[in-house]
């Protein structure tokens, strides 16, 4: 057993929609594996299959060698999950929520109490342990759900967009926790639509779009692949068409978007200079001039295009 997670040809359809389309990948032991994609890409569906919540229509998945369909309890016993839309029981206290999870995973009483105390202290929830989760803020609830996932000391931890919609501080605490547990040997499977988050956290990233994996690589290599997707966006006080601008060898693609012109380039510096020269020579006023990092959308379009071979 070389990998923490092995996914072969996994497929899930919802009626006409193919949410996950014959995907293949492996997650190495003890790495942070990012699953990056826009809304509706199939991230949650994949995580639900891997955590044994829904059944795939085709393909196989193993967690630490346990087939999720044939040995679901063994696989579930060694994983934990922070689902995307999950809630703790709002009519139970923080403490009762944690004890329930401990019991459901068969964590002995002394051990689960000890771990719960530690986790609640680490996440600054200890003072509130006897309060119903009903009164918790969104950030506190998410921290409690993360505590519930960590209480079982999983070998593989799944997190489905764990920081989306959170305040900056809670998000940072959650990222730090992910790093810390990973250093201590936990394999992490993290889904996100936040490219920066994936870059900062992950050892490797799979980019998924429309249920297909467009690329799997480490963040640096992916950035290289998308470096030609940087762009310069400019607007003048008069309408200027794309063809009127002087040709620049560094521009790979130019298009007009509203009153702006967007120039794709991996050398924004030289493009900006040539725009300024052009504006001076034509006596045009520059209303706005921005350099834009590649958007996730740009990366997808490029990577998915390459992936499809056109």
């Amino acid at each position: 057993m070389e990998h923490a997670i092995e996914v072969k040809d996994l497929t899930k359809n919802y009626g006409e929609i193919t949410a996950v389309n014959h995907i293949n990948f492996e997650v190495r032991k003890k790495e942070i594996f990012g699953f990056l994609g826009p809304n509706g890409a199939g991230k949650t569906t994949t995580i639900r299959i891997l955590t044994g919540v829904i059944k795939p229509d085709g393909g196989t998945a193993t967690i630490m060698g346990h087939n999720i369909l044939k040995e679901p309890l063994k696989a579930k016993q060694i994983i934990s999950v922070v689902p995307e839309m999950a809630n703790a029981y709002i009519n139970l206290t923080a403490w009762q929520n944690l004890m329930l999870i401990g019991e459901l995973y068969g964590v002995p009483k002394k051990v689960r109490q000890e771990r719960a105390r530690h986790l609640l202290r680490d996440f600054k929830l200890f003072e509130r342990r006897k309060h119903l989760a009903r009164g918790f803020s969104k950030g506190m609830k998410q921290k409690l759900i993360l505590c519930m996932a960590l209480l079982t000391e999983p070998q593989v931890l799944f997190l489905d967009e764990p920081t989306s919609g959170l305040d900056v501080e809670s998000a940072r605490l959650i990222r730090d926790t992910i790093r810390q547990y990973n250093r201590d040997g936990t394999t992490i499977f993290l889904s996100t639509h936040n490219m920066e988050e994936a870059n900062r956290l992950c050892d490797r990233i799979a980019i998924i779009n429309h249920g297909e994996i467009a690329a799997i690589d480490n963040p640096e290599s992916l950035r290289m692949k998308s470096s030609t997707l940087k762009s310069v966006e400019v607007s003048f006080n008069k309408s200027v068409s794309v063809n009127e601008l002087p040709k620049n060898a560094n521009v790979t693609e130019a298009k007009k978007i509203g009153d702006k012109i967007k120039l794709y380039t991996d050398e924004p510096h030289s493009v900006i200079n040539s725009i300024i020269d052009y504006a001076r020579s034509q006596d045009l006023k520059i209303i706005s001039l921005n350099t834009l990092a590649p958007t996730l959308e740009d990366v997808f379009i490029k990577l998915v295009r390459e992936y499809k071979g056109d």
Partner: peptide
């Protein structure tokens, strides 16, 4: 409805 089912179903309980 209260979105606790998914976590429950992911636990090692038949």
């Amino acid at each position: 409805r209260s979105r606790t089912l998914e976590r429950l179903v992911s636990t090692p309980v038949s």
